[in-house]
């Protein structure tokens, strides 16, 4: 038990990232508000980034830091476009609940 508590190794960081990923995934699957879903996706990307940096440390390889930086930039661009789409949808129907997007059901 004290090993798990006090001997923090790569496994700890990786499991922390996996839990973060799971929470993000759960948020996307369960919540209905587009903004919360977008935030949950950001959590998933952060979990991926944390995994990447843990492995970078493990392998002593800096190129993953570049990768992580690029992921952060992509997340920013994605958030900008996503929020713009949310605003556009809101303008049309005054709410952003994904369950109420029903114009396309047949």
């Amino acid at each position: 038990m004290s090993d798990i508590l006090f001997k923090v190794g790569y496994g700890h960081f990786l499991v922390l990232a996996a839990v973060l990923f799971l929470i993000g995934m759960g948020g996307v699957l369960v919540r209905r508000n587009a903004l919360i879903i977008l935030m949950s996706v950001e959590l998933m990307l952060n979990a991926a980034n944390m995994t990447l940096l843990t492995f970078a440390r493990m392998w002593g390889d800096l190129s993953a830091h570049t990768f992580a930086l690029i992921v952060i930039a992509v997340a920013a661009a994605e958030a900008a476009v996503g929020l713009a789409i949310v605003v556009a949808v809101f303008r049309g129907r005054r709410n952003v609940d994904v369950d109420k997007l029903t114009a396309l059901r047949h």
């Binding site: 996307v28 587009a34 977008l38 990307l45 996503g82 789409i85 556009a88 997007l101 114009a103 396309l104």
Partner: peptide, 16 residues
């Protein structure tokens, strides 16, 4: 807009 929203949310999820 609705198509874009659905495509975007699913696409972002897949990106994760």
């Amino acid at each position: 807009n609705e198509a874009a929203m659905k495509y975007f949310l699913i696409g972002a999820f897949a990106t994760g």
